[in-house]
Each structure stands twice: as structure tokens, then as C-alpha cells.
């Protein structure tokens, strides 16, 4: 519960800063502040770990109402359907291949102990 309170607190802080004129989305500001607070030790990982893991593990649940809502906007989607679908497919492949290809060259020599540290997670 404390974890949830801290996370919602950072979201509110981010939204407040957005209202004050910082042009980044409130959620992103909240995320940046929250990550900074964790990195500086202001917020201990143990306080928020379980809440965050719960929220992220069940993220699919949070998408269900939005997904069901797609049926409501079939008119808009049909109007620009071809443009949207083409944009989606081309862009998806472009991102996958640029990111994957570049990472293949830049990250292939990442140390083995990094990997084992991750495997033990």
C-alpha cells in the first residue's frame, strides 16, 4: 500500500509539473523523477518493488477496456484504415530492424557477468 502511495505520489508530482508548464507528459515526468529518486536512494527499492512488479505483471489487464473500445471507433479507423495500416507495418519493421541491427553491432560484446547477473534475477 505504501508502495502504491509513493508511485501515485510521483505521478501526481509529474502531472503538477506538467500543469506548471513543463511540456513533457505528466506520466513521463513522474517516471523520470521516480527513477531519479530510486537512483539517489531517496526512495528505497524495497518500498516499491512489490507494487511495481504487480502493476507491470498485470499490465495486459489494464489494456482490456481500451482494446474493447476499438470497436467504438471503427468509423474513424475505416476512413484512414489503409494509411494507418501501412504506416503501422512499415514503421514496425523499420524500428525492429534498425534497433535490432544497431544493437547487434553495439551490444554484442556485453560482458558475460552482466548476463549471468540477469539470469539470476
Amino acid at each position: 500500500m505504501v508502495g502504491f502511495l509513493i508511485i501515485v505520489g510521483f505521478e501526481l508530482l509529474g502531472m503538477g509539473l506538467h500543469r506548471l508548464g513543463i511540456p513533457l507528459p505528466g506520466g513521463v515526468l513522474g517516471l523520470l523523477l521516480f527513477a531519479t529518486a530510486l537512483a539517489t536512494g531517496l526512495v528505497k527499492v524495497e518500498w516499491v518493488e512489490r507494487t511495481a512488479a504487480f502493476l507491470l505483471r498485470h499490465m495486459l489487464l489494464l489494456f482490456i477496456p481500451v482494446m474493447a473500445g476499438l470497436t467504438q471507433m471503427s468509423a474513424e479507423l475505416r476512413h484512414d484504415g489503409v494509411a494507418l495500416l501501412a504506416s503501422l507495418v512499415v514503421s514496425l519493421l523499420a524500428v525492429l530492424l534498425t534497433t535490432g541491427g544497431l544493437a547487434h553491432f553495439l551490444l554484442r560484446d556485453v560482458k558475460i557477468d552482466d548476463l549471468s547477473a540477469l539470469e539470476n534475477e
Partner: peptide, 28 residues
């Protein structure tokens, strides 16, 4: 809409993997 609202805290919660993986992947 309760679930859609929770997407906000879920975004902020990304800070935890960001921080934890960031520490582990420091070198890269």
C-alpha cells in the same frame, strides 16, 4: 475506466525495472 486510470501508475512503476536493469547494464 478504473483500469485505464491505473495505466498512469503503471507508467511510473516502469521506474523500478529502469533503475534495476540500469544498474545491471551500467557498462552498456
Amino acid at each position: 475506466q478504473v483500469f485505464s486510470w491505473l495505466l498512469g501508475p503503471a507508467t511510473v512503476a516502469l521506474g523500478v525495472p529502469m533503475y534495476k536493469q540500469g544498474v545491471k547494464l551500467k557498462g552498456s
